[in-house]
Design a protein around this nucleic acid. Structure first.
Lengths: 163, 163
DNA sequence: ATAAGAATGAGAATCATTCTCAAGGAGCCG
DNA sequence: CGGCTCCTTGAGAATGATTCTCATTCTTAT
């Protein structure tokens, strides 16, 4: 557990955080406005980290990437960003929740989850599968009385590193 | 939050816990043996509750269903049952993890997750979708270098009660 | 029986996450 | 440029689901 966390942390480089596309920045700013929230520099850093990683990241990983962040503020801002539909929070195995940019900012995708280290990789499904999944969502809405809005598909297995 | 939990708890009736199929009991007993573990009465109660509910349940719900259970033992036994591949633990939104019997005991299925109350319902996907999902699992294995073993599909939306 | 090893339960400990509160901005209006 | 208000920040305390501890109570095999 502690070992695999350390392993993951070492993978995260101190990347250039400055190239989040303007379009995304505007969308984020706009969604925050909707809630009467500001797009502060701390929040920009979080978005930049998530953009740079392009993978679901844990909070310790974010603090590791940008050590100026305060833990409590980071958690608080992630809640705000989640409420603004900018960030998606996902919980898998493992001690920490993971965060990634909302799908409509980065494109629809799925996750490969490693059952050994708890790591998560992104993964794009073939379009015929996506089409079928879309249908199922609609079907479930009508038959089960459940109002399905989106789907989530994870493949569980073992990642390259753990093999 | 507290409200919706209470709502869920009230749904759980004090069911008859005695009719878990013999075949399942044997399988469970066998898998525990493999790990040098016993199929004790506490563990039987847990399995019976999970069987009776037929839905992923939280720990408070289980304690509510059978008040003789001690919290710490229940948690400990769920870990053992999970290690024995008898029980699957799943984390969604909401404060508590949920547990259900392993898929190979109850049949392969998916989940409808309510984003409002955090409740989870079971759901069986059409067979053509399952076939396609099977293919994708294989593809991911070969292309991404990721050894995919199974898939997990959730539909996220709003349940009947919350509408 | 009886010893040896598991399992149990009550409570303490852990630790990711959330909350609190005092201090530091940002925006606005004159 | 003040002054005012409200939002955000960060450090630390608090929360609470889960895990651990340990003395006691079963099980099982001999």
């Amino acid at each position: 557990m502690t070992n695999s966390l350390a392993k993951i942390l070492n993978k995260i480089p101190a990347k250039d955080l400055s190239k989040v596309p303007d379009k995304i920045q505007e969308t984020v700013a706009h969604r925050l406005e909707q809630l009467g929230q500001r797009y502060t520099s701390n929040r920009k850093i979080l978005v930049a980290i998530l953009w740079a990683q392009g993978q679901p990241v844990t909070l310790p990983e974010m603090l590791n990437a940008e050590s100026s962040l305060a833990q409590s503020s980071a958690y608080r801002n992630l809640v705000v960003l989640e409420e603004a539909q900018v960030v998606m929070r996902l919980v898998t195995t493992g001690q920490f929740a993971r965060y990634e940019l909302a799908e409509d900012l980065t494109g629809h995708h799925h996750h490969l989850i490693c059952r050994l280290c708890g790591g998560v990789e992104d993964f794009t499904a073939p379009s015929d599968l996506e089409r079928l999944l879309g249908k199922v969502v609609v079907q479930a809405s009508t038959t089960a009385g459940f109002l399905a809005e989106e789907h989530r598909l994870d493949l569980i297995g073992t990642c390259t590193d753990c093999r």
